[in-house]
């Protein structure tokens, strides 16, 4: 039996407002939504940066910080939104940058808000 499905895998509503956020426009940057940002994190980041073994990003940060900072990004309390934006759009080491068709500017703002939610 065939199961016709049409999973629209990108969130159309979020994508519709892309392209405006980090442009050099005057005025305060709009706030991201940490709850939506968590979904972005789960979809795009956990495969490398999830908690526990088998996550190369986490393993690498464990070696880098030697336990001084938590190795999983979700547990960090020092990630200001521009830092997240920089890494996502420029990549680092083996991590390539993410394009706007993957993580839109609006989704990136949410992601940055999620990773900054416990910022001290």
């Amino acid at each position: 039996m065939s199961r016709p499905v049409a999973f629209v895998l990108a969130a159309a509503a979020v994508l519709a407002c892309c392209g405006t956020l980090y442009a050099a426009k005057p005025g305060p940057a709009p706030q991201g939504d940490p709850a939506r940002g968590q979904a972005v994190y789960t979809r795009w980041c956990t495969a490398c940066h999830g908690r526990g073994p088998g996550h190369p990003g986490t393993q690498s940060l464990q070696v880098k910080y030697g336990g001084k900072l938590p190795p999983a990004l979700e547990d960090r309390t020092d990630l200001a939104p521009p830092v997240t934006v920089q890494f996502v759009r420029h990549g680092f080491a083996l991590m390539p940058p993410f394009r706007k068709t993957e993580i839109s500017d609006a989704e990136l703002r949410d992601l940055a808000a999620y990773l900054a939610r416990n910022r001290k």
Partner: peptide, 30 residues
């Protein structure tokens, strides 16, 4: 990437029909 639909999953025939923007992670979830 925006052509991202899993158009068909046919369990009996063990086949799928996908668009180019569907990643392995996406198809796994589907």
């Amino acid at each position: 990437k925006r052509l991202d639909r899993v158009l068909d999953i046919d369990e009996a025939n063990a086949s799928v029909l996908v668009e180019p923007g569907v990643s392995y992670f996406d198809l796994y979830r589907a």
